[in-house]
């Protein structure tokens, strides 16, 4: 690699943890196979601290428009061309996933999404990515000279580097065919796809009125909340919280499943979690076979005790 470009996604004028991971990931590649890491900041967020995560330089493009996949892709592709980038790294977030394919098409690059490993370059350029919605992994060789990787949040450790990154600005005009009319962000809540701890509830909670317990434990542990498919199908919780094969695949450090039996489709979405805790009153629940820690007990007896300890 000669020039690695990282799309430094930001929200509310700060860089996300997933962005820090993406920059550290790029720097790791640069350290092993050579190359420089350029962090691309679109908008007004100050990129001064990105050197700490491994960026050699920071390029800012002062684009005032809202995030739209077409305008942002135009900007990223233009910068990549001007820097002669041969590798683009983005985070596998909703925004990252909407720009990665468009940029790959404009650069005639090979694309891999859901990437969870550093590239193996001994024979080609091979990365490991999640397939079958968490049920398996594939090692994929990317053949084009230019590559675009979308890396899964929580897959790489953030490393700190010393040294200031060189800062520069580029002026690029981009237009979008998409008009953003309204944005509704849930404030004060941790995004499920990026959360390090996730508390999830299933049918064992009996009804939406009992979700207070899940939220209380989540608050105490700084966690995001999730749910199983039946729970979102019955409308107890929004579909955006449904983890599993036809929902979201997540990879937190800790996943606590309360009252979820552990059907194969659900396990697919959470099996990459580092530590899994299953709480279920049925000792035969399949989740216990996929968990690191288990408690056989009724959620209504067990959870209050755990919440009390977590608040301590």
């Amino acid at each position: 690699m000669k020039n690695i470009l990282v799309f430094a996604e930001s929200a509310d004028n700060t860089f996300k943890k997933s962005t820090q991971e993406a920059i550290s990931y790029a720097r790791e590649i640069a350290e092993t196979v050579g190359g420089t890491v350029t962090a691309l900041v679109i908008g007004a967020t100050d990129g001064s601290n990105l050197g700490n995560y491994g960026a050699h330089q920071v390029v800012s493009v002062d684009y005032a428009g809202s995030f739209t996949s077409d305008a942002y892709s135009t900007i990223i592709a233009e910068v990549a061309k001007s820097m002669q980038s041969d590798l683009l790294v983005v985070s596998n977030t909703y925004s990252g996933k909407s720009v990665a394919p468009r940029v790959a098409a404009s650069l005639d690059a090979s694309l891999a999404t859901n990437v969870i490993s550093l590239p193996v370059t001994s024979d080609g350029f091979v990365v490991k990515r999640g397939v079958f919605s968490g049920k398996a992994f594939a090692w994929v060789n990317l053949s084009k000279s230019c590559k675009v990787l979308s890396i899964t949040p929580n897959s790489f450790e953030i490393k700190t580097w010393s040294g200031d990154a060189n800062k520069s600005t580029q002026s690029i005009s981009a237009t979008s065919g998409i008009a953003v009319e309204q944005v509704n962000k849930v404030t004060g809540k941790i995004a499920l796809t990026e959360a390090e701890v996730v508390i999830s509830g299933g049918r064992g909670l009996k009804g939406p009125e009992n979700w207070g317990m899940i939220e209380e434990l989540a608050d105490a542990l700084g966690a995001a909340t999730a749910c199983s498919k039946p729970v979102s199908d019955m409308g107890w919780r929004p579909h955006s919280e449904h983890v599993g094969q036809t929902g979201i695949t997540i990879k937190p450090n800790l996943y606590i499943a309360v009252g979820i039996s552990g059907a194969i489709q659900h396990l697919a979405g959470v099996s990459s979690s580092k530590v899994i805790v299953a709480i279920n009153k049925d000792p035969e629940a399949p989740f216990f076979k996929a968990a690191d820690y288990g408690i056989v007990g009724d959620a209504f007896d067990v959870l209050p005790k755990i919440i009390a300890a977590a608040k301590n």
Partner: peptide
């Protein structure tokens, strides 16, 4: 979108 939902037209 990450952490919410938005309305767009095109």
């Amino acid at each position: 979108i990450d952490g919410g939902r938005e309305t767009v037209s095109c």
